[in-house]
Amino acid sequence: MTSVAKLVRSIPLNGFRFATDAVTIEAASPAARLSIRATKRGVTSLSKSLGLTLPADPSKSSKKAGRHALWLGPDEWLVVDEKLAAEDLIPKRASREFSVVDVSHRNTAFIVSGDDAATALNAGCPRNLSLKAFPVGACSRTLFGKAEIILYRTGRTVFRVECWRSFAPYVRDLLCEGAKDVRN
């Protein structure tokens, strides 16, 4: 008789939370993530099967019922779904017009929120995070200290920070230092 090993998903820094008066940093809940490369035709068919449009313009995102599509490059997107598993999102039929890779477990994410969230992020991120330069819905691959992140502004004072899971402790520590450095 053979036994089948059952894999249990472990979430880096599961349940992590740190808060000051002005900034809250939390580990985001588990999510399904797809790394997508696609041609123009691929975008059309994927937008249909995913039920939301893959944005064509730089740094733009789209969302629908807990599912987000983030523009990363001219033919590259990250799709994050907070409810479904990646298997439920991947198109059933393969195509030469796109590639879809399940990276749900490669990344983990933090939610950074509060009046001084942008200031805390700027401790390690060199980008202009004013609402004019980086409005709600803006997203981009960038750097946070030495770690590459994907930054996504989901609200005026709310950011999602996606990073590779092996970088999570580093990103957490630098975020906390940034939050502590913020003084009203």
Binding site: P58, G73, P74, E76, R141, T142, L143
Partner: peptide, 13 residues
């Protein structure tokens, strides 16, 4: 100077 650059920690292009 005419140079190639890569937006490696951005769009990758």
């Amino acid at each position: 100077n005419l140079e190639r650059w890569r937006h490696i920690h951005g769009c990758g292009r």
